[in-house]
């Protein structure tokens, strides 16, 4: 982050040990941490002085974290990272479709958490600067020029079909975030297309043009059973 004020993180978690670990770790990284142990406290904290990001545990004593996310999304675009011990793909898809920006399954390492927080904050900052859609995107070895519809990988131009370009552009705009199959299909193909294999085949072609080894991707990552993520680190 370039701004000097530390980012404020709202930590919604009912497990005391988990809160202690996260508070200590995040404080050490110069984040300002506010704590809430249930959904009621979280609502209060959000409406008071909104934080920059919310770390949300799904299993709260007074309600489901997914409902909280949905409620929040009706009036705010605050980045939300869901932390959950439920590791099933369905739960991830549900949380992401409800509007969560990312999903971390417990247990997770600190590095992974910090990487996701960075991505979410960067994405939020980028959304604020959406007024300028002509900015060239630089993500790792990837370079996208929205005006000239030009894609370069390691400075080598790549020819994409319009559909592949739209898919890559959508992933790049949300670089670092997991996008569910349904979300991608809705944004790139438009409503009415729900066949996941259509997306999978298009993704395979895109990988063949962008990845050096499509069978061991380093940019276009698969979150099996959930969706895709364009790597951003």
């Amino acid at each position: 982050m370039t701004n000097t004020t530390p980012a404020r993180i709202l930590l919604v978690e009912d497990e005391i040990q988990m809160r202690r670990f996260l508070r200590t770790a995040l404080n050490a990284r110069d984040f300002d941490v506010i704590e809430a142990s249930n959904a009621r406290e979280a609502r209060l904290a959000v409406t008071g002085r909104p934080p920059d990001l919310i770390l949300l545990d799904l299993g709260l004593p007074d309600g489901d974290g997914i409902d909280f996310t949905r409620e929040l999304r009706s009036w705010s675009q605050l980045p939300v990272i869901v932390l959950s011990a439920r590791g099933r793909e369905d739960d991830k898809v549900m949380a992401l479709d409800a509007g969560a920006d990312d999903y971390l399954t417990k247990p997770f390492g600190l590095n992974e958490l910090l990487a996701r927080i960075r991505v979410a904050l960067r994405h939020a900052a980028r959304s604020h600067a959406r007024d300028n859609p002509e900015t060239i995107l630089h993500i790792g070895p990837l370079q996208l020029d929205p005006v000239r519809r030009e894609v370069r990988i390691d400075d080598q131009p790549v020819t994409l079909t319009p559909l592949e370009y739209r898919l890559l552009w959508y992933l790049a705009k949300n670089a670092g975030r997991v996008l569910t199959h349904q979300l991608i299909l809705r944004h790139v193909w438009g409503p009415g297309t729900s066949q996941t294999h259509t997306l999978r085949v298009c993704m395979a072609q895109l990988r063949h043009k962008i990845e050096s080894d499509p069978a061991h991707p380093r940019i276009l990552m698969t979150e099996m059973g959930v969706g895709y993520r364009l790597r951003d680190d």
Partner: peptide, 11 residues
């Protein structure tokens, strides 16, 4: 679902 084998092995 139909899935490219490459995607499975890649993941």
């Amino acid at each position: 679902e139909w899935i490219p084998f490459e995607e499975l092995i890649g993941a």
